[in-house]
Design a protein around this nucleic acid. Structure first.
Length: 114
DNA sequence: AGGTTGACGTCTC
DNA sequence: AGAGACGCCAACC
């Protein structure tokens, strides 16, 4: 089965589900990896469903700036930050510290598939 | 049935 | 180089 046969959402679930602990990635990185660099917003929507349906660690996915923009969508108010800190990631005011250090690049980790 | 928003990012001026 | 506008596709109203 060609992975491209899957829906965009399903692809996002797989990639996000492959994110190791203590690592974070950005919506755009996933979107670009799927071949839809400009569809970063769609990734966010996918995460919305993912958090409720799939066991995808949506808390490990943040925007390019490392800001927990979607923390407001989690159960609690700072639940997202709590989860990231629990994995050893330093988060201050919804801002991930050492982002480049914790950044998980699908192109580098999964390999550039085109 | 149509219009607007939305967990963002890239392109253009 | 900085700021602004647009795009992506789906869901919600």
């Amino acid at each position: 089965m060609n992975p491209e046969n899957k829906n965009f959402f399903q692809k996002v679930y797989e990639v996000a589900s492959q994110i190791p602990e203590g690592r974070v990635t950005s919506y755009g990185a996933i979107a670009k990896y799927l071949g839809a660099a400009r569809s970063a917003r769609m990734v966010g929507w996918a995460m919305n469903s993912a958090g409720s349906m799939e066991h995808v660690p949506a808390h490990r996915v943040v925007n390019k700036a490392g800001l927990l923009t979607g923390k407001h969508h989690f159960d609690g108010t700072n639940l997202m930050q709590q989860l990231l800190e629990n994995e050893g990631i330093e988060v201050i005011d919804n801002q991930i510290q050492n982002l480049d250090k914790h950044f998980w690049d699908p192109f580098k980790e999964l390999g550039v598939e085109e």
